[in-house]
Design a protein around this nucleic acid. Structure first.
Lengths: 249, 249
DNA sequence: CTCCAGGTATAACAGAGTTATGGTTGACTG
DNA sequence: CAGTCAACCATAACTCTGTTATACCTGGAG
């Protein structure tokens, strides 16, 4: 068993334990037992629990990006934005623990993932402090502007507004402020998207049509995702179904 | 020194330590030393660190509500919404550590404040899971609808959208995703507010005027807040200036 | 064969939350 | 007024966490 293999297995086990038992189960001893090693593995490969939490956060960003990458690009850029929002929300709801760690909202053992650490390790020119997800919103916004459905503003400005609203809704929903069921999608998230689209230049009719299109496309994609019971697909992680449970702390 | 006095001093010390040194300095032993007692005080009065963190979160909600309560009600409901947004954001930026604990984004010693615990203790019919702040946005929205500047929708719907966007922006800014200086207010938060207002029914001109009004009113209020150097005032806590520093973790 | 470097297990250490215990205090009560 | 009792608290221990020091492999290079 090579060294880097242990490193990957540690992150895998960390994500699994996090999803199953929450932040407090993410402990060096439990982790070591999970991969059949001693606690030293954490220190030889990461240097400490803090760096391991950072690695978990990076994995969360990676899964978020992977899920957004699966959203198809269609002729309707605003329907695409709605679809991206649904994917973003599904990623968070599918594994709220990982989402919380990813955005520094949870600190297992007092070790909060810091943005500096997240961006330090690999400098592959990720935009905006290591969040690829933002790029997807920015590109869709650019297409909406190009298509004349958004006013001619900077795509960055539109994307920053969309991201703020989307991230805020998801954060509040996963925190329990909007109830448990999926009513929030219908009554808050989608209307919020329509409001933003109209405010950015679209007509009410067109925005609502795009929202409806995204909703049905999304439902179909969920149905076609056989093997998983309506969950989000992750392209790269082959066997491990990290999404599927939503345990509460 | 009465018993409940020690309890209050513990929460005070917790808020102070949190603002000064971050979540990891919020420890039973440090806390006890701060109020001149032993660690047992935490257990006789709260039952454990978890309940103390919950109390700190409640205090954060209280300060947030107090700051929003100070925003005056004017004839321009949308300018009032902008002013509420600025107060909300200033509260978070003034003490990001407390804000993080309040919304469960930080877990000192692995003890995250849970919404259940927050609402359980006192049942004074707080709307929406213990967040009074939402009520202010809802009332302003109702007035905007009444004035014909928002479409005739449920005030709850409008407020939920506004809160999502506002909370998302503030969360992302305090997490460092939007840079450190106040450029985010000008380039993201205020345009986001204009977008939402327009999307909810206001005209672009009126929304931008209201935004400008709120900005200047806010700046004046900051200048008139002598004693504090441009910080948010808290009505109830008399001497203790918990706002004023913004330490990083 | 020797040496060496990386990885590991073991065991100990330091610092957290928590708890068991006994002592002090103060008010109520016969 | 003396006794009693409940609340509170200080001390010291206990448990569990991250962390580190140390010695032991193991495999390949010279």
């Amino acid at each position: 068993m090579s060294g880097s293999e242990v490193k990957a297995k540690l992150v895998d086990a960390a994500v699994r334990l996090l999803a199953e038992g929450g932040p407090e189960t993410l402990q060096a001893r439990k982790l070591a037992a999970e991969v059949g090693a001693s606690t030293m593995a954490v220190y030889t490969h990461f240097g400490g629990m803090g760096a391991l939490v950072d690695a978990v956060a990076r994995e969360g960003f990676r899964q978020l990006s992977a899920n957004l990458a699966q959203v198809p690009v269609t002729a309707d850029p605003i329907a695409d934005i709605f679809a991206q929002a649904l994917a973003y929300r599904a990623t968070a709801v599918g594994n709220p623990q990982l989402f919380a760690v990813t955005f520094g909202q949870s600190s297992p053992g007092g070790k909060r993932a810091s943005l500096q650490n997240l961006t330090a390790e690999e400098n592959r020119s990720k935009p905006h402090d290591g969040l690829e997800a933002f790029g997807y919103l920015e590109r869709s916004s650019a297409r909406a502007i190009e298509a004349g459905r958004f006013h001619p503003i900077e795509p960055f400005t539109a994307a920053a507004q969309l991201w703020s609203a989307l991230h805020g809704y998801v954060t509040l929903e996963t925190s329990g402020h909007f109830g448990d069921d999926e009513q929030g999608i219908v009554h808050i998230l989608m209307p919020l998207g329509v409001t933003l689209a109209v405010g950015l230049g679209d007509t009410m009719d067109a925005a609502q049509r795009s929202a409806a299109v995204a909703r049905t496309t999304w439902s179909d994609a969920q149905r076609n995702a056989n093997g998983h019971s309506g969950d989000v697909q992750v392209t790269s992680e082959p066997a491990q179904a990290t999404f599927g449970r939503a345990p509460d702390v």
